[in-house]
């Protein structure tokens, strides 16, 4: 049934928007991309109503975001870093610890912004959304082995960034 896919995907609107925003670094363009993605889902016929719609939704969003990036021209590393999104609401009982965690989040966001879009997508889909390797593979249209290796490398880089924060904290 037409519209059914979009209806089933609606609970994941926020996750889809966050992915588009991660890739485009622009809230408004992310909104437009998501709107277009849902319009495309609405026009498709449902294959299996029991199947998880998220991989399909994220694949459409990712592809549209890449198209949008190409249309708008490549985004420079500097602009990606400069337009890094807001910090997370991390709570801690100790003000000093809280400040340290804020610094950690900022550092992570800077590192994330500097990553290759495929790395960003894989990290987000695993640690932000919780998709399986297989589902992530279907989103980025690569093999599970690629997902595993990409995830490992991306996390190692993030861990290094966190480590630097810890070192600064100790010094």
């Amino acid at each position: 049934m037409a519209d059914d896919l979009a209806r089933r995907a609606l609970p994941y609107w926020a996750e889809a928007h966050a992915l588009a925003r991660l890739l485009l670094r622009d809230r408004g363009r992310a909104y437009d991309v998501c709107q277009e993605a849902f319009a495309r889902l609405a026009a498709r016929e449902t294959d299996d109503p029991r199947r998880d719609v998220r991989p399909l939704l994220f694949r459409v969003v990712r592809n549209l975001a890449i198209d949008e990036q190409r249309r708008a021209g490549a985004i420079s590393l500097e602009s990606r870093i400069a337009s890094t999104g807001p910090i997370a609401d991390l709570r801690s009982p100790d003000p000093a610890e809280e400040a340290s965690r804020r610094e950690q989040v900022r550092r992570l966001e800077r590192e994330l912004a500097a990553l290759d879009p495929v790395w960003q997508t894989v990290l987000y889909l695993r640690d932000g959304v919780g998709l399986s390797y297989r589902e992530i593979a279907s989103v980025i249209e690569r093999s599970e082995d690629v997902v595993r290796v990409t995830l490992h490398r991306a996390r190692r880089r993030m861990r290094t960034a966190l480590g630097a924060t810890e070192e600064r904290k100790c010094s």
Binding site: W13, A14, G85, G128
Partner: peptide, 16 residues
């Protein structure tokens, strides 16, 4: 730590 960063991005998404 990554989960926290992503959770914030999800939480601040506009309504559809």
């Amino acid at each position: 730590a990554l989960g926290d960063v992503f959770a914030d991005a999800i939480a601040t998404a506009p309504l559809p």
